[in-house]
Measured scan of single mutants.
Amino acid sequence: SEEWVEIALRLLELGREANINGTILNLHKEEIEELIRRLLKRI
Rank of each mutant, 00 (worst) to 15 (best):
residue 5 V to A: 05
residue 15 G to E: 02
residue 9 L to F: 07
residue 32 I to A: 02
residue 25 L to Q: 10
residue 14 L to Q: 02
residue 28 H to A: 11
residue 19 N to R: 12
residue 12 L to T: 03
residue 41 K to Y: 08
residue 26 N to H: 10
residue 37 R to Y: 05
residue 42 R to G: 11
residue 4 W to M: 09
residue 3 E to Q: 10
residue 32 I to W: 10
residue 3 E to R: 13
residue 1 S to I: 13
residue 22 G to W: 06
residue 24 I to F: 08
residue 17 E to T: 07
residue 24 I to K: 03
residue 41 K to W: 07
residue 34 E to H: 07
residue 29 K to N: 13
residue 24 I to A: 05
residue 19 N to Q: 11
residue 24 I to T: 02
residue 31 E to W: 13
residue 21 N to H: 06
residue 2 E to I: 14
residue 42 R to E: 11
residue 6 E to W: 11
residue 6 E to F: 12
residue 9 L to N: 06
residue 2 E to R: 11
residue 3 E to N: 07
residue 3 E to T: 09
residue 28 H to I: 15
residue 33 E to T: 07
residue 32 I to N: 00
residue 9 L to I: 06
residue 4 W to I: 09
residue 17 E to M: 13
residue 27 L to S: 14
residue 17 E to Q: 08
residue 30 E to G: 08
residue 35 L to Q: 01
residue 11 L to A: 02
residue 38 R to D: 06
residue 42 R to I: 14
residue 34 E to W: 04
residue 21 N to I: 15
residue 39 L to K: 00
residue 43 I to T: 02
residue 15 G to K: 02
residue 43 I to N: 05
residue 11 L to K: 00
residue 25 L to H: 06
residue 2 E to H: 12
residue 8 A to K: 03
residue 43 I to E: 02
residue 21 N to L: 15
residue 33 E to H: 08
residue 33 E to Q: 08
residue 28 H to D: 12
residue 20 I to E: 05
residue 3 E to G: 12
residue 41 K to V: 10
residue 19 N to I: 15
residue 22 G to H: 06
residue 19 N to F: 15
residue 39 L to N: 00
residue 16 R to F: 14
residue 31 E to H: 09
residue 5 V to C: 15
residue 33 E to F: 13
residue 23 T to I: 11
residue 17 E to I: 08
residue 22 G to L: 14
residue 26 N to E: 14
residue 36 I to D: 00
residue 30 E to F: 07
residue 32 I to G: 00
residue 17 E to D: 07
residue 36 I to M: 02
residue 41 K to N: 05
residue 12 L to I: 13
residue 16 R to K: 10
residue 33 E to Y: 13
residue 16 R to Q: 06
residue 39 L to E: 01
residue 29 K to H: 10
residue 14 L to F: 05
residue 16 R to M: 08
residue 43 I to R: 01
residue 32 I to E: 00
residue 10 R to W: 11
residue 21 N to P: 08
residue 37 R to H: 06
residue 38 R to S: 07
residue 9 L to S: 03
residue 6 E to C: 15
residue 26 N to I: 11
residue 15 G to R: 02
residue 42 R to W: 15
residue 31 E to R: 02
residue 30 E to I: 04
residue 19 N to S: 15
residue 29 K to R: 10
residue 18 A to F: 09
residue 1 S to P: 09
residue 8 A to M: 11
residue 9 L to P: 00
residue 5 V to T: 04
residue 42 R to V: 14
residue 40 L to N: 02
residue 37 R to D: 11
residue 19 N to T: 13
residue 1 S to M: 13
residue 21 N to A: 13
residue 43 I to F: 07
residue 26 N to D: 13
residue 24 I to Q: 03
residue 8 A to I: 15
residue 8 A to Y: 09
residue 38 R to L: 08
residue 14 L to W: 10
residue 36 I to T: 01
residue 42 R to T: 13
residue 39 L to M: 06
residue 3 E to D: 11
residue 25 L to R: 11
residue 29 K to Q: 11
residue 5 V to F: 11
residue 36 I to E: 00
residue 17 E to G: 04
residue 13 E to H: 02
residue 15 G to D: 03
residue 30 E to T: 09
residue 28 H to P: 09
residue 36 I to H: 00
residue 32 I to P: 00
residue 6 E to K: 10
residue 2 E to A: 12
residue 38 R to K: 08
residue 8 A to F: 14
residue 32 I to C: 13
residue 25 L to N: 09
residue 14 L to A: 03
residue 11 L to V: 04
residue 4 W to D: 01
residue 22 G to A: 12
residue 29 K to S: 13
residue 41 K to G: 07
residue 16 R to Y: 13
residue 19 N to D: 08
residue 2 E to D: 09
residue 11 L to D: 00
residue 36 I to F: 09
residue 31 E to G: 03
residue 21 N to R: 07
residue 21 N to S: 05
residue 9 L to G: 03
residue 5 V to D: 02
residue 27 L to Y: 09
residue 3 E to S: 15
residue 20 I to H: 06
residue 35 L to G: 00
residue 14 L to I: 11
residue 17 E to L: 14
residue 20 I to Q: 05
residue 6 E to L: 12
residue 16 R to D: 03
residue 27 L to V: 05
residue 21 N to M: 12
residue 5 V to N: 02
residue 34 E to Q: 07
residue 14 L to P: 01
residue 13 E to P: 01
residue 14 L to E: 02
residue 5 V to M: 08
residue 28 H to E: 09
residue 43 I to G: 03
residue 9 L to T: 03
residue 7 I to L: 08
residue 34 E to M: 07
residue 33 E to M: 12
residue 27 L to N: 10
residue 38 R to E: 10
residue 41 K to S: 08
residue 22 G to M: 11
residue 13 E to G: 12
residue 36 I to G: 01
residue 17 E to Y: 07
residue 42 R to M: 12
residue 23 T to Q: 08
residue 1 S to T: 09
residue 39 L to P: 00
